[in-house]
Computed example of a mutant assay.
Amino acid sequence: MSMRILMAGVSGFLGTRLVDRLTADGHQVTRLVRRAPRTPDERQWNPSAAQLDPAVVADADAVVNLAGAGVGDKRWNDEYRRVIRSSRVDTSTTLAITIAGMSAADRPTVLLNASAVGWYGNTGDRVVEEDSPAGEGFLADVCRVWEAATRPAEDADVRVVRLRTGLPLHRDGGLLKPQLLPFRLGIAGRLGSGRQWLPWISMRDWLDAVALLLARDDLAGPVNVVGPNPVTNAEFTRELARELHRPAIIPIPAVALKIALGGFAHEALTSTRVLPGVLTKAGFTWTHPHLPTALHAALTE
Score class of each variant (00 low, 15 high):
L185A: 14
L198T: 10
L212Y: 07
G118S: 02
A234C: 01
D155M: 14
L181F: 11
I201C: 05
S202G: 09
V223P: 04
L139C: 13
D208R: 15
L212V: 03
D131G: 09
E130K: 08
D155A: 15
L139G: 13
E129S: 15
P168T: 04
R159I: 07
A100D: 03
P108E: 10
G221T: 12
L175V: 11
A105S: 15
W200T: 06
C143D: 09
A215K: 13
D217G: 14
V158S: 08
N113M: 00
N113S: 15
E154H: 14
L212C: 07
P222H: 09
V128T: 06
W119M: 12
L180V: 02
A134H: 13
E239P: 00
T232G: 01
D125I: 00
E243G: 00
F236V: 02
L240C: 00
V223Q: 09
D217H: 15
S193I: 05
G186C: 02
F138G: 02
L185R: 11
D125A: 04
R144I: 07
V142N: 06
S193P: 10
C143E: 09
L240T: 01
V127C: 04
P168N: 04
E154F: 05
N122I: 03
L139P: 13
L191H: 08
I187S: 08
L181Q: 13
G124Y: 02
S115K: 08
G101I: 08
E147G: 02
V117D: 03
G186A: 01
R238I: 00
D208S: 15
V128A: 05
N224E: 10
L219P: 11
D157K: 13
V145D: 15
P178E: 04
R164G: 03
R190N: 01
R107Q: 13
A104Q: 15
G186P: 06
D217Y: 11
L139H: 08
P152V: 02
H245T: 12
A241G: 07
D172A: 15
T165G: 05
Q179C: 06
T123G: 02
G118I: 03
L176T: 07
R171H: 10
G166F: 02
R204F: 00
R107S: 12
R171P: 00
D208C: 10
A140W: 02
V145E: 15
D131E: 14
L219K: 07
A114I: 08
V231A: 07
I201P: 10
H170W: 09
W206E: 12
L214K: 12
T123E: 04
N233A: 07
D125E: 09
R190E: 00
D218V: 06
A104H: 14
A114F: 11
D218L: 08
D172C: 08
L198V: 14
L212K: 11
R216G: 10
D172W: 11
R242D: 06
L240D: 00
G221H: 13
A156E: 07
I201M: 07
L111S: 12
L167H: 08
D131P: 09
K177Q: 12
A188I: 01
L244M: 06
L176Q: 02
K177C: 00
P168Q: 03
H245Q: 13
V226G: 05
V145T: 14
